[in-house]
Simulated assay, not measured.
Amino acid sequence: MNKSKLKVSDNDIVVPGELLAQGMNYLPSHGTYRLKENILSSKLGLVRIDGKVIKLIPLSGKYLPKKGDVIIGKIKDINFSGWRVETNSAYVAMLSMKDASSDYIPKGADLTKYFEVGDFILTKITNVTSQNLIDLSMKGPGLKKLNSGRIVIIDPTKVPRIIGKRGSMVSMIKNSTKCNIIVGQNGVIWIKGEPEDEYIASEAIKIIEKESHVSGLTNRINEFIKSEKVK
């Protein structure tokens, strides 16, 4: 019998059918399966190894972060050195004090004066480490806290369809609803306008996400917004 051997590490990203381990000493769990003496992945996911048990955290519908991406995050926690940020991904994101503001933030400062738990921010990814940690920055044009408005979360793979060719789709929604719309590359979208217009814009975005494969979608969305506006 072949000696048991682990072929991946904790936090590795794997694709369906990828070999995770050989031998009978390891046990398959969520998102993995055994084929003879091998354990394989059944989906795109993030590897989690707990002793001899191998499982996957699914990444379909989740964002895979890249350095340079501009995303919308939600402040999840505050500690002595900065803020932990939710990014619609399986990764942990941190915004440090030095990257949170152009102003100097002294040690011991009340960090809630800058960002509180629950705040949404438009931020930029400056680094993604091999341990799947994300470093964020608020230093850059347009990066800011997003006050009020409405948040819509979509499958990140549908972001290009929401934006459209040369920004045509999102521009049409903005112009038709008079809303300010920011599309994060992580699939989190911020909409701000009159409440009824925010609702129409968010519904239009959900239709695009659902029907992204349909031809003539721009006209369909245009007609939808017009019909909603006259109600």
Rank of each mutant, 00 (worst) to 15 (best):
S41K: 05
E37V: 08
R48S: 11
K74F: 01
K52Y: 04
G51P: 01
A21F: 04
L46I: 09
I71W: 01
F80L: 05
D69F: 06
K66G: 00
K43E: 13
K55Q: 09
K62D: 00
I71A: 02
T32A: 08
S29E: 14
K76Y: 04
K36V: 14
S41L: 12
S81T: 03
Y63S: 02
H30W: 06
L44F: 14
I39Q: 03
G61D: 08
D69Q: 05
N25R: 06
F80T: 01
I78H: 08
G45Q: 04
K76C: 10
K62G: 00
N38M: 13
N38K: 15
K55T: 04
K66H: 13
L46E: 08
K67S: 11
R34V: 14
W83D: 06
Y63Q: 03
I57D: 09
F80Q: 03
G73I: 02
N25W: 01
L20Q: 07
I72C: 01
I49Q: 01
Q22K: 13
I39S: 14
V70W: 09
I39T: 06
K36A: 15
V47K: 14
P58R: 05
G45V: 00
I57L: 14
N38C: 12
K74D: 02
P58Y: 07
L27T: 09
S81C: 07
L20H: 03
L64N: 13
K74P: 02
I72W: 02
K76R: 15
K74T: 08
N79K: 07
S41P: 00
I71L: 06
K52L: 09
N79S: 12
